[in-house]
Simulated assay, not measured.
Amino acid sequence: LFWQTLASLGRVAQGYSIAAIVGISVGILVGTNPIIDKALDPLFQFLRMVAPLAWVPIALVAFQQNQPAAIFVIFITSVWPILINTKEGVKQIPDDYNNVARVLQLSRKEYYLNILFPSALPYIFTGLRIAVGLAWLAIIAAEIV
């Protein structure tokens, strides 16, 4: 039981870590670009509603191995709250902050480090917290694999 639980925890950690990296990165990209946001938001809203159990057969057909399929199910279940919350956090940055960045002519790196991340961090952590719970729910579906 111990080794099986440890293997499950490893799968959760891998799927959740990939979801955090992808969700935060894509969330920042979509949040900073309104055209990409309008193009991809319907797709995100549609895919996030698919139940974790429905991803199991798709993952098995796509990966044809148990371990990658289980990690994918955990990833695809937990990436949406991270991505959507990060996107909203970036969109909620006050206009005053963006105006100050323009006036000070901050570089992209300075803007991200000094304005974007500190302003969006509460939203990002909220998405990460919600995603942990969903990752634990998805491990049940992933263990079916």
Score class of each variant (00 low, 15 high):
21 I>F: 08
81 P>R: 03
140 I>E: 05
36 I>N: 06
123 Y>D: 01
5 T>M: 03
2 F>K: 02
89 G>I: 12
47 L>T: 03
48 R>W: 07
110 E>Q: 12
39 A>N: 08
66 N>G: 13
122 P>E: 08
87 K>Q: 12
64 Q>D: 04
11 R>C: 00
139 I>G: 05
75 F>K: 00
144 I>N: 10
140 I>H: 13
45 Q>P: 06
88 E>F: 05
84 I>Q: 07
63 F>P: 03
95 D>S: 10
12 V>M: 04
93 I>S: 03
26 V>F: 14
38 K>I: 09
108 R>L: 08
138 A>I: 09
45 Q>D: 12
128 L>M: 13
102 R>L: 14
51 A>T: 14
110 E>P: 06
41 D>V: 11
117 F>I: 07
20 A>C: 02
114 N>F: 13
90 V>H: 12
91 K>A: 13
5 T>C: 00
115 I>H: 00
61 V>W: 03
102 R>V: 14
138 A>R: 03
122 P>M: 05
1 L>M: 14
138 A>P: 07
30 V>N: 02
131 A>R: 06
107 S>P: 04
29 L>R: 03
84 I>R: 08
40 L>K: 08
106 L>T: 11
126 T>A: 11
9 L>V: 11
136 W>V: 03
22 V>S: 02
73 V>T: 06
106 L>C: 03
11 R>K: 11
27 G>A: 08
145 V>A: 10
101 A>D: 05
19 A>L: 04
98 N>G: 05
7 A>N: 12
62 A>L: 15
114 N>A: 11
29 L>K: 07
52 P>H: 09
136 W>I: 11
142 A>M: 15
94 P>A: 08
20 A>L: 03
40 L>E: 07
5 T>L: 06
89 G>P: 13
105 Q>P: 00
116 L>M: 10
117 F>Q: 02
36 I>K: 04
29 L>D: 10
136 W>T: 05
101 A>R: 06
25 S>C: 14
118 P>W: 07
50 V>S: 08
48 R>Y: 06
106 L>R: 08
91 K>Y: 12
32 T>C: 07
108 R>E: 10
81 P>N: 03
31 G>C: 11
47 L>K: 13
12 V>N: 01
51 A>N: 15
10 G>C: 11
65 Q>L: 08
139 I>D: 01
57 P>F: 02
57 P>S: 13
14 Q>Y: 04
39 A>E: 12
45 Q>N: 15
84 I>S: 05
11 R>M: 07
48 R>C: 09
16 Y>K: 01
95 D>K: 15
34 P>H: 09
96 D>N: 13
43 L>T: 08
24 I>R: 01
145 V>R: 05
109 K>F: 15
116 L>G: 01
28 I>C: 09
66 N>C: 11
101 A>H: 09
21 I>A: 10
5 T>I: 01
28 I>T: 11
34 P>T: 14
23 G>T: 06
127 G>S: 01
53 L>S: 11
21 I>H: 07
132 V>W: 07
55 W>F: 05
122 P>L: 10
135 A>T: 06
70 A>E: 00
122 P>W: 09
43 L>C: 01
37 D>N: 13
53 L>G: 08
12 V>C: 04
120 A>H: 13
12 V>E: 04
35 I>W: 14
78 S>F: 03
135 A>E: 09
104 L>P: 01
127 G>C: 01
61 V>K: 00
55 W>I: 02
1 L>V: 10
34 P>D: 15
